[in-house]
């Protein structure tokens, strides 16, 4: 194995060995998953109503969550990247908390807020008779809660990476901040925005702990793919394997597609244009 850059000597075994171990550790479970999967049953399982239902629900809820995340996340990222206001670091810290919070704790927190007797949930129930928990909407809310931080951090980083002087240029050319945001900042942060969307979507698609805690696990309304895997693992491990492989395939396929199609185009666009 050759070290990159100038030939400064052999790569030390002390570093290489743990690195290889890490790679093996990360790949082995995935290989095992593929090896154990009952491929002959794949077609049947795939078309079974339960799987299709879970898959459909997962796709719909994760995409809905990503849409909301984008609508509120971009402005938040912009504010964090471009505005100087007191307590900005506090806001950023608050945004990061769900990132490190155990998802199940997030679910409990969501229940405390939006549950039937929650801080917001109780008045909501009293005034409109609306209860959120254990509905498909709750799945989306759980997804938003865990995916938003990924997105905001990614977009904020992208916005910070674009030269703030461009804002100055745009201002001297007569552009309002809104125009500048639309026509300059956002396009320049495009690749970061896309990466953020993919990250958020992947996070939402795989979300389990907060979802099952806050939304439950009802077939058709809140049983997303991860929830279905959890159920099947206790009754029918083969089914769990098949579902896992499907989820893995969907994730990898979309990531690969985005990488090849949009990422490269977007990145080239920003760098080479």
């Amino acid at each position: 194995m050759r070290a990159r850059g100038p030939a400064v000597g052999r790569a030390p075994v002390v570093l290489l060995l743990p690195a290889l171990l890490a790679v093996a550790f990360l790949t082995l479970p995935l290989v095992a998953l593929l090896a154990r999967t009952p491929w002959s049953q794949l077609a049947d399982r795939l078309t079974s109503e339960a799987v299709l239902q879970a898959l459909r629900l997962s796709v719909v809820t994760s995409l809905a969550a990503v849409a909301v995340v984008a609508v509120v996340g971009v402005p938040l990222a912009w504010a964090l990247a471009r505005l100087d206001f007191p307590g900005r670091s506090l806001v950023r810290a608050l945004v990061i908390v769900p990132l490190v919070l155990p998802p199940v704790v997030g679910g409990v927190a969501l229940l405390s807020a939006f549950g039937r007797r929650g801080l917001v949930g109780a008045p909501l129930d009293a005034a409109f008779g609306v209860t959120l928990p254990y509905t498909t909407a709750a799945v989306v809310v759980a997804h938003i809660f865990v995916a938003l931080p990924f997105f905001v951090l990614s977009v904020e980083g992208a916005l910070r990476a674009t030269d703030r002087e461009f804002d100055v240029v745009a201002a001297t050319l007569g552009a309002s901040r809104w125009t500048t945001f639309r026509t300059v900042s956002l396009p320049l942060a495009g690749p970061g925005l896309l990466a953020g969307l993919v990250l958020a979507w992947a996070r939402a698609l795989g979300e389990f702990g907060a979802t099952i805690t806050f939304a439950g696990n009802f077939p058709g309304t809140t049983r997303t793919m991860p929830n279905a895997i959890y159920v099947e693992l206790q009754t029918d491990p083969d089914a769990a394997l098949v579902l896992s492989v499907i989820l893995m395939a969907v994730s990898v396929a979309v990531l690969a597609l985005l990488r090849d199609r949009w990422f490269d185009v977007a990145v080239q666009g920003a760098v080479r244009r």
Binding site: A171, T172, L188
Partner: peptide, 18 residues
């Protein structure tokens, strides 16, 4: 700034890259 009708040329050009 945007209502002042100034024109500015910067050392690094700062053309919008996109």
């Amino acid at each position: 700034a945007r209502r002042r009708h100034v024109g500015m040329v910067f050392q690094q050009g700062l053309l919008f890259p996109h």
